[in-house]
Design a protein around this nucleic acid. Structure first.
Lengths: 109, 109
DNA sequence: TAGTTATATAAGCCAGTCGGTATGTTCAAA
DNA sequence: TTTGAACATACCGACTGGCTTATATAACTA
């Protein structure tokens, strides 16, 4: 999942498909890359379940499938608490140890 | 950001530092990689602002800095709506267009 | 059926990167 | 100041992955 998303061109494709489904030729024009290169990226995205092709009058319209991104969201989840509370790993650790000083913040779950 | 996170070893390091800050030697032992390799990953993470080193009795204790991950979260945000509502780019598009009938299924070559 | 268009796959090149070994560098203790 | 431990950097070989050109496949059209 991270591997698939680490490529800038593939993220551009996802961003474009987020607006609306598109034909391969449309993506080629907007990305300014060769058609085979775009097709290979689409294959990678397809195998990751992030896009889906629908035949349409001899062409192929690609559409976004966002569900697999939930994995990324799941990975991010435990980190989200840290930055959203301004708490990093150091303070989190100190929270679990006998306190030697004042405790500025308190924490939930 | 995506480039930094696309490496499995670096994600393992972040996961370990999420538990608690650690010395380089501790990470080396837990990752089973050579010390220079770990140091190189730490440098990459440091330059991305994801970790931070604190000198400690001649050693270096690395701690997590989760804030930059907010960028990832921001990128993810517009997609989160799609999968959380079960709405993908296709239906989103069709919502804005007059319906022409039932849609077929896809196929593979 | 042949020709044309749209897309997919194949093969090859090149740049970037991961991991390793060897070598600096820094710091604390003696 | 010297030694030794902990960590960083330099450099190298192997592999990966993206891009390009050339070619194959599929579907529409005449």
């Amino acid at each position: 999942m991270f591997d698939v998303l680490s490529d800038h061109s593939r993220r551009r494709i996802l961003d474009l498909l987020r607006e609306r489904p598109r034909l391969v030729g449309e993506l080629v024009a907007e990305l300014g890359m060769s058609q085979p290169t775009v097709s290979k990226h689409l294959r990678t995205l397809r195998e990751a379940g992030l896009v889906q092709a629908r035949p349409e009058a001899g062409r192929r319209r690609y559409e976004l499938r966002a569900e697999p991104l939930a994995q990324l969201d799941a990975w991010l989840e435990p980190y989200r608490r840290l930055w959203s509370t301004g708490l990093d790993a150091l303070e989190q650790h100190l929270d679990t140890m006998p306190d030697t000083g004042p405790d500025p913040q308190e924490q939930l779950p």
